[in-house]
Computed example of a mutant assay.
Amino acid sequence: MGSSHPSAGGAADTPAEATAADVAARVRDTLEVVFEAVAETLADTTAVLTAAADRGTPPTTGDLAALRPGLEHRLGRLGLVSGIGFVAAPGLLADVPAWLEWWQSGADGTVRPLLLDLDPGHSAYSDYTHWDWYALPRDTGLRAVAGPYVDYLCSDEYSLTLSAPVTVGGAFAGVAAADVYLSHFEAAVMPVLRELPGPACLVNARGRVAVSTDTRYLAGSLLRGPDFAAVLTGPDGAADHYGARLRACGSIPIVLATAPAG
């Protein structure tokens, strides 16, 4: 075909740098796919729990077995998701004090249930109610992104957990949630962040850094000072903090923090 031509300035054409708005939108789209799977799980769970309420008996782990085909399907469909399911509020089920109806993908690609001993006499992880992925949706009624953290309960991997509250009859019943390995999330969004002209990082509502191109802030560290939750709930979805620009990634509870180039 024809030879390439230099630009009017004499230099070869180069891709334009992405704007912060572009990057925030692409991060939003990446995580919204995961939240859509969480929403599907939430809808299935609500239907199961509502059916139990309509018959006038407390739900059991046997009722939650109806969620399994949908959970297996979502795991097979979404490569970014490593685990997905429903985590019951303590005391919700008639036959056990606590329960995770949780399915996850193995290293070999197989899908299997997570089998846990949640007896407080045997397990150090029997009380999951203080963890951000559970407490934030319970306390705020909103979706949450927790982590990154080492997920000792499910995988022993550095992960993010995306979760949303499940309510039945106006009462909190637990959370629908999905896990994403941090390495998989980094692979999906790091190239996007590197299109920005200056350093940037993605931070959750607690100030925990998820992914960063800024050498001052490593994944898992806390970025102190800004009120990230206020940025997420504010009318503009953006704010300035000592030269850094904070921008919500749409309705996803993640903030893009960018610093000037140079």
Rank of each mutant, 00 (worst) to 15 (best):
A25F: 02
T258C: 13
L196D: 11
T129S: 14
L80I: 09
A257S: 10
D240L: 10
A219S: 15
G262Q: 12
T140P: 10
D108Q: 08
E40L: 13
V27F: 05
D227P: 02
C154N: 12
T41M: 06
T61L: 06
F228V: 08
P165S: 00
A18C: 04
Y125C: 00
G56A: 03
G2Y: 00
A244T: 02
R28C: 10
E36M: 14
V96A: 07
I84T: 03
S251K: 14
L67W: 01
D54W: 01
A18I: 06
R28H: 15
A88R: 09
A261M: 09
S251C: 11
V23A: 14
A178G: 01
D139T: 14
P148Q: 06
A53V: 02
Y242N: 13
V166M: 00
V166R: 00
D179C: 02
R208T: 13
R245K: 13
A53C: 02
G79F: 04
L193M: 02
L64H: 03
V87T: 13
A12Y: 15
A51F: 03
A24W: 14
A107Q: 10
P58R: 14
D95A: 03
H241T: 10
V231W: 08
R143V: 13
P97Q: 06
D179E: 11
P15Y: 09
L100E: 04
S221V: 07
T110E: 13
M190R: 15
L78A: 10
V38F: 01
P90C: 02
R194M: 12
V192Q: 13
T60A: 00
V87K: 07
A12E: 14
T161A: 09
T140G: 09
V192K: 01
G174W: 05
D44V: 12
T57Y: 03
T233H: 10
S183F: 05
E17H: 15
R247N: 03
